Amino acid sequence: KLATQLLVDLAEGCHTHHFNSLLDIIEKVMARSLSPPPELEERDVAAYSASLEDVKTAVLGLLVILQTKLYTLPASHATRVYEMLVSHIQLHYKHSYTLPIASSIRLQAFDFLLLLRADSLHRLGLPNKDGVVRFSPYCVCDYMEPERGSEKKTSGPLSPPTGPPGPAPAGPAVRLGSVPYSLLFRVLLQCLKQESDWKVLKLVLGRLPESLRYKVLIFTSPCSVDQLCSALCSMLSGPKTLERLRGAPEGFSRTDLHLAVVPVLTALISYHNYLDKTKQREMVYCLEQGLIHRCASQCVVALSICSVEMPDIIIKALPVLVVKLTHISATASMAVPLLEFLSTLARLPHLYRNFAAEQYASVFAISLPYTNPSKFNQYIVCLAHHVIAMWFIRCRLPFRKDFVPFITKGLRSNVLLSFDDTPEKDSFRARSTSLNERPKSLRIARPPKQGLNNSPPVKEFKESSAAEAFRCRSISVSEHVVRSRIQTSLTSASLGSADENSVAQADDSLKN
């Protein structure tokens, strides 16, 4: 292990032709098999893994070397290190390495390699500790012929580059190093199909959405987006994914797998022009299946994007999809995704031109529960009313008269009656009930004795009459309010007539 670390330190600071010789020695160290011998017992696995620490030291050392060589000349050094790393990870899946030390190597290698970024000039870069990406002036992410390196360097940008540029090249004859992302992409596909350690798979799935944002990485080298989509959909639809995973937390289920895969599918929607129609349908189907899991909100957001990006695919699945959405409970976490999906859909009339009455009724059935102001915040309630109004205007004229009683009944049950079921009123009724029952229970537990009763009969009569009056008032709060309003209006009217009579009498006395 110490000798391997010494080789790594020497290679990191070497800029001459001896660098390749040092890498040859490190490569021989990495070539050791990580498969346990067949006769190895389970209690000896930890000791055997400790004997392979030099392999881990070599791989982690290459990660440090690549981070240094990416910004220094010659660029061919970075290319050689990158290829060695990718080849080593491929061996893991070729020979099915399952030892804990092998999983640790893959975890740290993917953690580093999935941080690679590219700008519009195809320059590769890595983020620093502050998250700012520094791009290399010597390494690009696409394949290029050595003699055409300078031509590639002087080509115009596709868009303004992001991030601070690296140091300027030493001279005009500098050759750019090619670090094609397709090599890593193929290893990522192998990981999605064969990885057995949940920690490694979770890391890859968590980092892929951010990497897919940099389309330069994908399009400048032959990366098959179709295969990526197929691998992701197979993970969700195939039963073998959960069987092969180990190291998963207790209670791990298909729902947890959906939570990890759906963000990658959402990021892949922007590549729909490069996906086969069959793959697009598979993607939409997987998102529909996710509606029954805890990732339902993410799936609804993804389907909203699909309705804009892939209208030809979503239009066929939309009638059944809208009916499925009615089975989702009206909760605060689902309110905004569902209502925004319906609001977006209302502005795309070509998608729902074939809707029948059942689909329009489903839209109103989804939106009406969110009009309850005692359960949802003001934004959700306003958005629900907006969706109902928009869809009522957009639905066909023959359907409107049939939906009017349905909508008014839903609004009455969710908006008007919600004020009668407020917690304050319920607590008031509970308190009044307890007050009504309390005197009775006290009389049963403690019967009054005439000799020891010091309270006069008049006081008892007053208290009983007050309790009886309170019971009468607490029967119905709404009736009490109505009666008080009527009494107030009658009182004001009587006072007004009394004032008029007094004024008339005063005038008569003055005349006399």
Score class of each variant (00 low, 15 high):
78 A>H: 02
83 E>Y: 09
72 T>P: 01
158 L>H: 12
71 Y>K: 02
189 L>Y: 03
179 V>R: 02
147 E>C: 11
99 L>A: 05
72 T>C: 14
86 V>D: 01
184 L>I: 09
128 N>F: 07
248 A>V: 12
68 T>M: 04
151 E>F: 12
76 S>W: 13
55 V>I: 06
62 L>H: 01
138 Y>I: 07
153 K>T: 12
56 K>E: 13
151 E>W: 08
51 S>R: 07
206 G>W: 07
82 Y>K: 00
126 L>P: 00
160 P>F: 08
56 K>D: 02
210 E>I: 11
87 S>I: 04
57 T>R: 05
201 L>R: 00
64 V>K: 15
214 Y>E: 05
188 L>A: 04
75 A>F: 07
69 K>V: 01
210 E>S: 07
89 I>Y: 00
222 P>Q: 08
56 K>R: 11
150 S>I: 13
133 V>M: 14
74 P>Y: 03
136 S>L: 01
149 G>P: 12
134 R>G: 04
202 K>W: 03
54 D>H: 03
141 C>I: 04
71 Y>M: 05
214 Y>C: 12
86 V>I: 07
130 D>S: 08
183 L>V: 10
96 S>G: 12
117 R>G: 02
67 Q>A: 05
160 P>Y: 07
89 I>W: 00
225 V>W: 02
91 L>S: 13
129 K>N: 10
223 C>I: 03
64 V>Y: 06
195 E>M: 00
165 P>Q: 09
151 E>I: 14
183 L>Y: 11
224 S>Y: 06
82 Y>Q: 01
144 M>T: 09
124 L>C: 10
193 K>E: 13
81 V>Q: 00
65 I>M: 08
141 C>F: 02
59 V>I: 07
239 P>I: 07
52 L>A: 07
244 R>Y: 04
117 R>P: 01
231 A>C: 09
120 S>V: 08
65 I>P: 01
166 G>L: 13
122 H>K: 05
125 G>N: 01
196 S>V: 09
218 I>P: 03
235 M>D: 01
96 S>E: 13
66 L>K: 01
86 V>C: 08
183 L>G: 15
203 L>I: 10
97 Y>F: 06
75 A>S: 10
215 K>W: 01
231 A>Y: 05
145 E>P: 11
196 S>C: 09
218 I>S: 03
229 C>M: 04
150 S>M: 12
95 H>D: 11
59 V>R: 00
220 T>P: 02
68 T>N: 09
222 P>C: 04
177 G>V: 11
249 P>L: 03
138 Y>W: 13
200 V>C: 04
118 A>W: 02
222 P>T: 05
78 A>G: 04
152 K>V: 14
184 L>M: 08
237 S>N: 09
132 V>N: 10
75 A>K: 03
64 V>S: 15
186 R>S: 13
235 M>Y: 03
183 L>Q: 12
58 A>M: 00
189 L>M: 07
124 L>N: 02
153 K>R: 11
226 D>T: 08
231 A>K: 02
240 K>A: 13
178 S>R: 10
231 A>M: 05
65 I>N: 02
236 L>H: 02
105 I>H: 00
220 T>M: 03
76 S>K: 09
86 V>W: 03
234 S>Y: 07
149 G>D: 14
117 R>C: 03
194 Q>E: 13
79 T>F: 12
223 C>V: 03
118 A>S: 06
209 P>L: 04
80 R>E: 02
187 V>D: 02
63 L>S: 12
118 A>T: 04
121 L>Q: 10
250 E>I: 09
237 S>H: 11
93 Y>Q: 01
220 T>Q: 04
77 H>K: 01
133 V>E: 04
239 P>Y: 11
59 V>E: 01
118 A>H: 03
125 G>F: 02
158 L>R: 08
81 V>A: 04
127 P>S: 06
163 G>F: 08
176 L>Q: 11
105 I>K: 00
195 E>F: 00
250 E>G: 07
186 R>G: 14
70 L>N: 01
66 L>A: 03
49 S>P: 03
101 I>S: 02
183 L>S: 12
136 S>Q: 02
198 W>D: 00
130 D>K: 08
61 G>T: 00
140 V>Y: 08
127 P>I: 06
131 G>D: 04
245 L>W: 05
216 V>F: 03
71 Y>R: 03
122 H>G: 08
74 P>I: 00
76 S>M: 08
115 L>E: 12
71 Y>A: 03
82 Y>I: 04
206 G>K: 11
75 A>R: 03
134 R>K: 09
240 K>I: 06
188 L>G: 01
207 R>P: 00
78 A>V: 08
131 G>T: 03
123 R>K: 05
60 L>A: 15
199 K>S: 14
68 T>S: 11
69 K>P: 00
206 G>D: 13
62 L>W: 00
214 Y>K: 03
229 C>K: 01
158 L>S: 15
251 G>H: 08
240 K>F: 10
50 A>I: 07
144 M>L: 11
